[in-house]
Design a protein around this nucleic acid. Sequence first.
DNA 1: GTCTATACTCGGATAGAC
DNA 2: GTCTATCCGAGTATAGAC
Lengths: 209, 209
Amino acid sequence: MVNIESATIQATEEKILSAATLIFRARGKEGARMQDIADEAGINKALLHYYFHSKDLLFEKVFKENSNLFFSKLNQIIQSDTALFDKIDNLCDAYISMSLENPFIPILIIDESNKNPSEFIQKLFSGSNKKPNFNTFKEQIRLEVKAGKIKPTNPEHLIMNILGLCIFPVISRPMMKFTMGLSDREFTLAMEERKKIVPAFIIESIRKK
Amino acid sequence: MVNIESATIQATEEKILSAATLIFRARGKEGARMQDIADEAGINKALLHYYFHSKDLLFEKVFKENSNLFFSKLNQIIQSDTALFDKIDNLCDAYISMSLENPFIPILIIDESNKNPSEFIQKLFSGSNKKPNFNTFKEQIRLEVKAGKIKPTNPEHLIMNILGLCIFPVISRPMMKFTMGLSDREFTLAMEERKKIVPAFIIESIRKK
DNA sequence: GTCTATACTCGGATAGAC
DNA sequence: GTCTATCCGAGTATAGAC
């Protein structure tokens, strides 16, 4: 038997959360309207405040939940015990997939973090959200360089390269589509291609021949 | 002799424009307050409306002016009659420099274009703003492939790679600094390094050996 | 828990004097 | 062209009935 009452609570909270995700994604924090979120969830404004008290808190909740998926996946891959080239492969695949599914997360992170760097980052990594840790990865690169399997490679730049190659095209979707004259379908296909092309591009550049 | 009256007009309009640039950069379109722009310019709200009529129009003006610098420079380099590897060098240098000086331009483009793709892009490239044209560049790549100087290379993906490698780290500055534990000075130095590292990284990957 | 109705605030925009 | 004062809509938040 299901507890009807708490099942209802759960349903409403979930409905709000996914409605809020949708609206914040489409209009940003400032541009989003509580009324729109309420409409999207099929309830009224008062109930939003009943559940989440304020727009600020609702945004924080939605945002932390979503971005955490991102960072925890990243940490998981980057700290795993996998050969370097495979790891790069996994990283690219995961980043491109996640960005495609949730482009608004990197966009909001970039946007909000530039507006209010210290406060934003502090909030983002408070509670259970763990900050990305590149130490294992850096060490792995040093070892591969030492072993003569890859060229001397600066780990920080390599990480920036991976992130830029995977995330940027996805969050720039409208501009990329427009400047290159791609349909929605063609763009998605191009991103699928990139899951192979990007790791190949990176590895071709760093491996010793 | 200077015409005092129009010199004053010019001065005020300029003051407003650079104040608006500053505020829009810091808070985005929705987050920006006309009062803050007025304060920054050392005038009052009424005068803002006297000069630019509405917030929307002021934003459009500021934004188009700034982004045009970006796109015209891009077109200039990409359509120039320069050898491919030199062109990649020039592109990276210009993109990294411009993003460093005006990170808010790519951020706003990404942000606003995702919110309202068709309308935004239409406005962006109305009037004298010219859309980026990659045709020359694509043709150049095809020729180099044919001549056996570079590996078979998809031009669209190469362009995305260049843009991502140059722009992404700069617009993600706060996150990059935080996750890699860099000071402001160290970050700037790293970006200067990238003007050499990125083209080398790209060329190493595509050139035929 | 959910609704309707309403209070309150912020901020963009305008009127009108100088 | 510039100011002060004011309006008014939009949108967040709350009160209170059910």
